[in-house]
Amino acid sequence: MTPAPLLPPVPFAPSGLSGRAKRFVEVDGIRVPGQELRRHRDAWLRQGIPAAEIDRAAAFQDRWGGLALPPAPFYEGGPRVLDADCPEGSADGGWSFSAGSCRVSMAYGFMIGPDGAFGIDAHRWTPLHECIDGWVESLALAAHAGRWARTVTRIRGRAVESVDLDGYEPVPEVRGLTDTWWRGEDSLVALYRGEAVGLDAPQCLEAQVYGGLDEWGLRGG
C-alpha cells in the first residue's frame, strides 16, 4: 500500500496578531522548511556583519521563516515565502535583510529595513508597514474584506489622490507607513503607494475600496 504523501504542516500563528490575522495564518497559510541562519553566524561575522544584525535576521526567521501565505492583492502577490537571508549593509550605514523571494521577476525586492519596517527596495528603500506583522495584518484584512464586501472598486493612477477619506479612521493593526488602510461607516479603503514612491511612478498608485460591509465585515477580529 502506497503511503499517503506528507502534507506541509499547518502553521501556528505567532503571538501578537489580531484574531483575524491569526485565523488567516492558521487557515490559509502553510509552513515549509526554512533555512537555519545561525549556522552561517561565524562566516558572516568574518565578513564584517554585526552580530546584532545576524541575531535580528535569525529572530525574524524563528518567528516567520518558511511561512507561505496567499498572494497579496498588489505588489505581484508579495513574497512567495517569508524567509530571511544574509544581512546587507547600505551606504548610510544601516543594515537590511530579505523578507522572502518574489513570486515573479520584479524591479524590486521585499526587505526588512534597519528599523524593522517591511518594505520594498526599488530605486530607493520604501517602508510599507512598521513591521512584518503589519504586512501580515494587511493580507488578512484584504482577504477578509474581499470575502464580505458587496462591491470592490479599484482606482489607479493620479485619481487615487482624489479618494475622499473624510470620516474615515486609520486601521491601526496594519501599522501602515507608505501603505495604509482606512475604515469608514460601511467600507474599507486600502491605499497602495509603495510602487509609486519606490519607483518614482505615480501611475502605479492604487486604491481598493471595499463597500457594503456590516460591522463584522468592517472588523472581523
Rank of each mutant, 00 (worst) to 15 (best):
G134S: 08
H123E: 13
M106E: 14
L128F: 03
R147S: 11
I120L: 11
G134F: 00
T126K: 05
R103G: 13
Y108E: 12
A145Q: 02
E137S: 09
A140H: 02
E130I: 00
A143H: 12
F118H: 14
F110M: 09
H123N: 15
L141E: 13
W148H: 15
R124E: 15
G146I: 01
S138C: 07
R150A: 11
C102E: 12
V104L: 10
G116D: 14
V104P: 08
I112G: 06
W125E: 14
D133Q: 10
W125N: 10
F118S: 08
W148I: 10
L128K: 04
H123W: 06
M111C: 10
A142Q: 07
S98R: 08
G134L: 07
D133H: 07
A117C: 12
I112S: 04
S105H: 12
A142N: 11
G113D: 14
V104A: 13
A142I: 00
G119V: 01
P114T: 03
I112T: 11
L141K: 11
P114D: 09
A122R: 01
S105L: 13
L141Y: 06
F118N: 08
A99H: 02
G113C: 08
R124K: 14
G100Q: 07
G119N: 05
I120A: 06
M106Q: 15
C102I: 00
M106F: 08
L139Q: 05
A149Q: 09
G119R: 02
P114C: 01
A99W: 02
V136D: 06
A99E: 11
A107C: 13
E130G: 14
D121N: 14
A140M: 01
S101L: 11
A143L: 04
D121M: 08
I132M: 05
L141F: 09
W125V: 14
H123F: 07
E137T: 09
L139N: 02
A142V: 01
A145W: 11
M106S: 15
G146A: 07
C102D: 14
P114Y: 01
G100C: 09
G134T: 09
F118I: 06
I112Y: 02
E130C: 04
A149I: 08
H129E: 06
G100I: 03
A117K: 03
R124A: 14
G146V: 00
A142T: 12
A99L: 10
L139V: 04
Y108L: 08
F110S: 07
E137L: 04
G113E: 11
M106C: 15
F118V: 08
S138L: 04
L139F: 00
L128T: 06
S101H: 09
F110V: 06
G100W: 02
G146T: 03
L128M: 15
S101M: 07
A99F: 00
